[in-house]
């Protein structure tokens, strides 16, 4: 069992990394690209048989308190087998 966490910069926060990647994609000719946001992906291994609801609740708290910074980032949490 795993938790997958995707952390992205909030829209209001300057994302120079995303902007630079976007510029490069445009230079490469990917004309349809209208925005790029660079974040991070965190994979957390969980013991088999862990209660999903409890795991989600605990990791939601960890994501809010530690794994992301709510001032500058949003996150999506997914629990998979």
């Amino acid at each position: 069992m795993k938790a997958k966490l995707i952390v992205t910069p909030k829209k209001a926060v300057l994302d120079p990394q995303g902007k630079t990647v976007q510029n490069a994609l445009e230079h490469m000719g990917y004309a349809a690209v209208t925005g790029v946001h660079v974040g991070k992906y965190i994979e957390i291994d969980l013991a088999a048989g862990t209660d999903r609801v409890a795991a989600r609740k605990a990791l939601d708290e960890a994501a809010h308190k530690f794994l992301s910074n709510p001032v500058i980032e949003d996150y999506q949490l997914e629990i998979v087998d």
Partner: peptide, 17 residues
Amino acid sequence: LCEAGLLPGALVRNRDL
């Protein structure tokens, strides 16, 4: 201190990387 919530806001990557 910002991460700890003792000061408001956050410090992010410099504008020019």
